[in-house]
Nucleic acid binder design. Structure first.
Lengths: 345, 345
DNA sequence: CTGAAAGCGCTTACAG
DNA sequence: CTGAAAGCGCTTACAG
């Protein structure tokens, strides 16, 4: 790289101190600097193509204007959609975002936090993997500004932005019941992630409310690695029950994609033979033949809130916001047996 | 944040100079430092929970171990898949990545480059929007290490990793012709992006080779903003031609998702009534009823190569690599009229 | 084997 | 209105 021009170079060129150059270029002490000299400095800076060195500035000010975003996997559309929203919101406040994928792995997660803190990020937005409450507690102990996104730990007093997960699946299950479903399955992840447990609980409570006996074999747990074969098997098992399931709720978009791909190869028709509801609404789901009823998370709101809360926290360490946003049940054909959708093909 | 511990604190605690601490913690001059004192320093550093300040280190060494990744839109699965690969490859070499989305907008793109350079990234991986050759040339003029990914400018001598785009659509079109298609449409973006022009040209050359007269109305151009209605219209127009098209090639995964969603609502059947091939293979496409023939880009290879070339360039500014990777035509049901797939439903 | 010192490029009290 | 100077937390020739 060609030798970069520094404040000192400009100062020498104009014949003033670096301090003055710094003041002028940062628009400080405006009224109190001679106009001509200020203009001269700006002109020279422009002509020399001056580019402030943020690293030096950060070292001095102890602010990097960088936030670290830790997601499960940036290539998962759910994560990347949030990333985009965080990016836009952070940029508005002149923040840049660095990202990392934890792969649901506690060690990788630790490493990311470590790296990001070494890089002096001003704060973190985190979708933590399961069983990382200790690490999160350490962030608190060290007074590191952060907010949890999408996931949380009930035992920890930290800011978070999550979905009303219980309500989401409660509403979904109730909707299925109202549409005549009686044996409703769920495919969920086998994990300690609390928000996924909440999704299960909402579903169970809806059954109970409706006087439907809970049936343990209606819930299938798959590894969070999203293995297509395993998810296909889970579907098949639900259909192979003595009394087969007449509806399935998918606890995530990736479960849905894999399950529906499997269902595509089956002779059965959605929703005629099987009603279906999925968490999340991603473009990946749009090509299924039956328009899918889904639980829409307000991603825009979630990403923006998380970012804003983080930036607030950076300014004022005493901020604590725990926000649960509302899901929206978007009702389409896939959940309504009464619809004739399954027949028309 | 609790007062951070610095080299100086450790030095004071142990009773040595900061220089020595720095040497020990960086494992420099290993054989030449008394073992006991080295161990003591390491122990104290650990017990004080020392965390090296990368910012200070960067200021001194002029290396941030950060790369900037500029994509069109991180929420586009194509971009986020590449981002994930770049992330992994960069992490291997202890690099962190900051990202930004240009939205195909030249001004946003400028701003991102500016921000990233101010932050002293060691280099950039860039999918440039149309008409940004000037900006790219400036990077060269300023000796900034970078590599273009997915897109390039033939008039500029810069490192890049792209697909053999011409070959990709040439092969695809030929395959359709061999399977009996005679009037083959293409939906592409109206843009100056050269790689998309290459995709068009490959398609046209395949027609010519096969003795099929090029028909201007077979190519529809849509805005790169991916408006679903506009893309649906493009499909309809191709079907409404006096001599309707019997196959369509989609020039990107997002065109495909939108077009297929539209096709889903039509009475026609793929491939019986219309054969179809798409660029890119994303999970978004898996739920279409007919398994899709697609042009698979070797994303893993592309992301890794781009990252490696960048890191090479950072070390040695004289590196210049222009790589065109091979597409793979993954043949499935959607492109084969002879297949009975379209009939079985 | 170890330390004193300069310096990376900024900001910012402080002094005048 | 302007400047000299200290200092952010490191690294690294240089000297001994």
């Amino acid at each position: 790289m060609a030798k970069r021009v520094s404040l000192k170079d400009i100062a020498k060129e104009v014949g003033v101190s670096t301090a003055l150059v710094s003041y002028v270029l940062n628009n400080l002490k405006e009224g109190r600097i001679r106009k001509e000299i200020a203009q001269k400095i700006k002109d020279v800076a422009a002509s020399m193509n001056y580019r402030p060195n943020q690293i030096a500035k950060s070292l001095k000010t102890n602010r990097t204007y960088t936030v670290g975003l830790i997601v499960a996997d940036i290539s998962n559309p759910f994560s990347s959609s949030l990333a985009r929203i965080v990016e836009d919101e952070a940029n508005k406040m002149n923040y840049t975002v660095i990202f990392g994928s934890s792969d649901e792995n506690s060690e990788k997660f630790d490493k990311l936090i470590d790296t990001f803190l070494n890089r002096q990020v001003d704060g973190l937005i985190i979708s933590p993997p399961a069983n990382t409450a200790i690490q999160i507690q350490q962030l608190i102990d060290h007074d590191i500004p952060f907010v949890l996104l999408d996931r949380y730990f009930p035992e920890i007093t930290a800011s978070y932005v999550i979905l009303q997960n219980h309500k989401a699946s409660y509403t979904a299950a109730l909707h299925l019941i109202e549409n005549g479903c009686r044996s409703i399955g769920m495919i969920n992840y086998s994990t300690d992630l609390v928000h996924l447990h909440d999704r299960k609980q909402g579903y169970l409570d809806a059954l109970k409310t409706s006087g439907i006996d809970e049936n343990r074999s209606w819930i299938k747990y798959v590894d969070i690695a999203n293995d297509p074969a395993e998810i296909g098997n889970a579907v098949q098992e639900l259909l192979d029950l003595p009394e087969p399931v007449d509806a399935i709720i998918f606890a995530s978009n990736l479960i849905a994609v894999n399950a529906l791909q499997y269902i595509n190869r089956l002779p059965l028709k959605v929703p005629r033979d099987l009603a279906v509801i999925t968490f999340d609404e991603t473009s990946a789901l749009n090509l299924f033949y039956a328009p899918l009823t889904c639980i829409r998370q307000p991603l825009e709101e979630m990403g923006q809130l998380a970012t804003r809360i983080l930036l607030e926290t950076i300014k004022d360490k005493t901020v604590l916001s725990q926000i649960e946003v509302s899901p929206e049940l978007v009702i389409r054909a896939s959940s309504q047996k009464s619809s004739d959708y399954g027949l028309e093909r």
